[in-house]
Structures are given as C-alpha cells and as structure tokens.
Amino acid sequence: MKDVDRRALGLSAVLATVAGFVDAIGFLDSGGLFVSFMSGNSTHAAVDLGAAGGAVALTSATLIGSFVLGVTAGGLVGVRARRAPPWIVAGSAAAVALSALLALTGGVELPRLALLAAGMGSLNTLFPAEGRARVPVTYTTGTLVTLGLAVSALLTGGSRTAWMRPLLLWSALIGGAVVGGVVHRIGSASALSLAALALAGAAAVLARRRTSRVRPPHRAG
C-alpha cells in the first residue's frame, strides 16, 4: 500500500466508501450476509452446514462465487484493455445499476445480491501486484493487518506516517457503511442507484485523467 501514489490512494478511499455503502445495503437486504466481505460469508456457510441447514450456505456460496467471478472479470479486463481502470469501475457501476433495477421491479433477491458481489469483487483488481490485490478496496481484514503492523513499526522507531493510509481506507469503508445503513431507509433501489452514479462518476474521472495523459502537447503554429 505504501507504494500507491496519492491520487490512487484517493481513488481507493472513494471506492472503499462506495463499497461500504453497498455492503450495508446488501447486509440489510440479505438479513446478515455481505457482498464485499467474503470471509464473513464463508463463516456463515460453514456454520449453516454444521447446523444441518443449507439455505444460508447456498446463498453464501452464491455470493462468494459471484465475488470471485467479478475478480476474474476485472483481472481479464486488466490484461486485455489498454485503459483498464475506467472500464473496471464502469463495469462495477453497471452491475450495481442492474441490481438497483431488479430491486425496483421486485426481482428475485439472490441474483441482485450476486450482481453486487460481482461488482464489488471487480474493484479489487484496480491495483494488482504479483497476483494479488495491492490495495484491498472492498474488505478490511488485510487493511487492518497493515494498520497493526504500521502501528508496531511506529512504536519501534519506524515510519511515523505508514499507519495513516490503512486507517484512511478503513475509515472510508466504515463511513460508507454508516451512510448506507441510513440511506437504505429510502429503499434499496434508490440507495443502489446513488452508488451506481458514484461509481459511474469515478469511472468518468479515471477516463478523463487517462485521456489527458496520452494527449500530445499542443504546439503553437
């Protein structure tokens, strides 16, 4: 995370806020499952199977599979597209928008939750490094480990600022979840529409930045 520049860190914080927002909507709609936190869903599935259940385990497995498919799709876009980040974020926006449409029309709950999980999964491919996510955008376990290690370094004479970045990302996701929990009161479709618009805006900003970078300088005649 320390080798991510300030612009990328700012983008990560914005997307983490949206991810927290969307995760809160998914959590409330599903009755306690997650669309970005797959460790929690894995535990839910295991406990449900151990209790001779099955319904929660099936839902959790669907969300986990959808999340992995989203990561896979984002990874493929990253390999094949010249300007991958805007397309990845735009794809996430489309998935959230489609989920909002299904919520508006009274569609089956599981498919729209699966769309959210896929959309959130894809965001974690924006900062790849050696086959892993350099910045975990939509989940906090790795971020909190990084924060703890940074605090231990601070206490032993190491970097005085390394803890700030993981704390920023964690705070962004938690803040987004708080807002998501409140906005959920206006309805899932409306709340998810706001999240889709935020992601679309982020994609547009990314596309504009990359276009300005490759545009040749103007020369006076």
Results as ranks from 00 to 15, higher is better:
L123I: 11
A81W: 01
G91N: 03
G142S: 11
F127W: 14
V68I: 15
G40L: 11
A16G: 15
F67I: 10
R6Y: 03
T72E: 01
P85M: 06
A204G: 15
L168W: 03
A100R: 03
I88R: 00
A8L: 10
R112V: 06
A100D: 07
V79A: 15
G181C: 04
L149A: 12
L123G: 01
L206V: 09
L113T: 04
P85Y: 02
G131P: 03
V56H: 06
A129S: 13
S193L: 14
S193C: 14
L192H: 03
D29S: 13
G40D: 09
L110P: 00
V22C: 08
S30A: 14
L11V: 15
N41H: 07
S30V: 07
L123Y: 07
S159V: 02
I25Y: 02
G50L: 05
L33N: 07
T211P: 00
V179P: 01
L116D: 04
V178Q: 06
D3M: 04
L155D: 01
G70V: 04
A191E: 01
A93I: 12
A204I: 13
G106E: 10
L101D: 05
A8H: 13
V214A: 13
L28K: 02
G158M: 10
G26Y: 09
A129M: 03
R219A: 04
L192G: 07
S190D: 04
A150L: 05
L173K: 00
G20S: 08
L147C: 08
V4A: 13
G181T: 02
R165S: 12
L167F: 12
R160A: 15
S36D: 09
E130P: 00
I25S: 03
V14F: 13
Y139H: 14
S66L: 15
W163I: 01
V71D: 00
P217R: 13
A61N: 03
S36T: 15
G106V: 11
G158R: 03
G157E: 09
V22P: 05
V18G: 08
L63G: 10
T143Y: 01
P166E: 09
H218V: 15
V214P: 00
S159K: 04
T105D: 14
A61G: 10
M120F: 07
V18Q: 08
S212G: 03
P166I: 10
G54T: 11
W87S: 00
G10S: 13
V135Q: 01
T141I: 10
G50T: 10
D5C: 02
S190I: 10
S99M: 09
T62Y: 09
N41G: 12
A95G: 04
S152K: 07
T43C: 05
A51M: 14
L49A: 11
L49C: 09
M164E: 07
L197F: 14
G121K: 05
G32K: 05
